[in-house]
Amino acid sequence: MLEHQSPELPRPARLLAAALPSWPLEMVLTRALRALADRRPELFERLGVHSRCVFVVRPTDLDFAFSVVPHRWQGRVSVVRPETRGDVHIEGPLLRLLGLLDGSLDGDALFFNRVISVSGRTDALLALRNAIEEAELAPSDLLGVSGRVGRFADAAILRAIQALQGMAEPAANATPGAL
C-alpha cells in the first residue's frame, strides 16, 4: 500500500451533503464562477480553447459529482450523477480536491500517490490545473461573496475544513506540510 493515504469525509458530513438539494448549490457555484470571470478574466485566458470543455469533478466520498464548463461569463456548474461522462474526469476525496482549488496541495503529487485519478483530455486538464494554480482561490470565491462577508466566510469555512480533516477517515496527510 502507498504510504500516503487519502482522508474521506466523516459519515455525518457525507449524509448531510447527500440530503442537500442540488439546485441551490448549482446556482451559487455558477454565479461564483461567472463572478470570477468578471473579476479576473486573465485566469480564463489560461484555459484557452479548453474553456468549452466539460470537466466532471467527482468527490469519491460524496454521492454526486460536479460538471463544470468554465466558459467565462457563460460558465456553468451542475450537480450530476457520479457516472456522468465529460471531456475530463477528476476523482478524489473532497478534502484533497479542495486543497487543489486553493493551491495548498500539488496535483502531480496527489496523482503520483494515487490520491486522485484523472482521465479524458489531458491537455484540457492541465490548462484547468494551471488556471486554478494562478487563481489562488479562497472559499469566498466559490460562494461568490467578497468584502467582510467574504472574509467571514473564508475564516468559517477554513475552520470547518480543518475540523473535517481532524475527523477524516482514515486521517493522514497526502503530502506532508500541505493543507
Binding site: 487543489l100 493551491g103 496541495l105 500539488d106 502531480d108 490545473r129 489562488e136 506532508p176
Partner: peptide
C-alpha cells in the same frame, strides 16, 4: 515549473 504552488513552497 510544471508543478503547483504547494510543491514549490514545500
Amino acid at each position: 515549473r510544471q508543478r503547483g504552488k504547494g510543491y514549490v513552497a514545500e
